[in-house]
């Protein structure tokens, strides 16, 4: 959200000073994250309601998800959170090289997460657990219709999360280019701070998706 075409030291024209601008930018991002929280939150709430209503079937369906891959993916994402935070710190203290490499590592980790996620979906596709676009759905258990509801939620949540990951990767790449160019350190610091907030928030969302969908299997 920072405004383009500003000089290194001068704030954008609507602001009095850089402090005010940073404050506005960070606050804007937090307000945006509040909307994201309600976007994902309403879906998670719907899931929680049905999880309570159809407890046994949902638990059974959850045990068909890959716990190992999901756990590895969560660890990868949490680690990318660390590298993004470290990179932010490096940017603000002017350590350009380490900022660059840390952010590059974050992007690689993010891409790895997505690759594993796609692989998981592929496995579920081969096991005929993908009730999307009229694909066959064969669930080995009782109440296969209710299990289908579980998988509907699963694809909706992980899909929307993946879309947010892709957007987040785009943001990180923009910041990476800014670090490479390093023409306006003040602006890069602001962008890294705001882009980082978004990335961390997408991690938080994943923690809840992972816990509610993968871990609650009994």
């Amino acid at each position: 959200m920072p405004t383009m075409n500003t000089m290194t030291s001068a704030p954008a024209e609507q602001f009095d000073d850089l402090d005010q601008q940073l404050r506005a930018d960070v606050m804007g991002m937090w307000v945006f994250l509040a909307t994201e929280m309600l976007l994902f939150g309403s879906l998670l709430t719907g899931f929680v309601i049905f999880r309570i209503q159809h407890a046994a079937v949902f638990a059974d369906a959850a045990s068909h998800l890959g716990l190992k891959l999901g756990s590895i993916n969560t660890a990868i994402l949490l680690t990318s959170g660390l590298t993004v935070a470290l990179s932010e710190q490096a940017v603000s203290s002017g350590r350009r090289r380490s900022a660059f490499s840390l952010l590059l590592i974050s992007i690689v980790l993010g891409v790895t997460f997505l690759c594993i996620k796609f692989y998981e979906w592929y496995i579920e596709y081969t096991e005929e657990l993908m009730p999307v676009l009229g694909l066959p759905f064969r669930f080995k258990g009782e109440h296969d219709h209710v299990a289908e509801l579980f998988f509907n939620f699963y694809y909706m949540m992980t899909g929307l999360h993946a879309v947010h990951m892709i957007a987040g990767l785009g943001v990180l790449m923009v910041i990476l280019m800014q670090i490479a160019r390093w023409s306006e350190p003040g602006r890069v610091t602001r962008q890294a701070r705001i882009g980082g907030l978004y990335w961390h928030f997408v991690d938080v969302i994943w923690v809840f998706i992972f816990t509610l969908l993968y871990l609650l299997r009994s």
Binding site: G46, Q53, V132, N152
Partner: peptide
Amino acid sequence: GIGIFDPALGGDPLL
């Protein structure tokens, strides 16, 4: 075809 509100799947239109 991702039906969350579909009663046939145990979903609930009231949601």
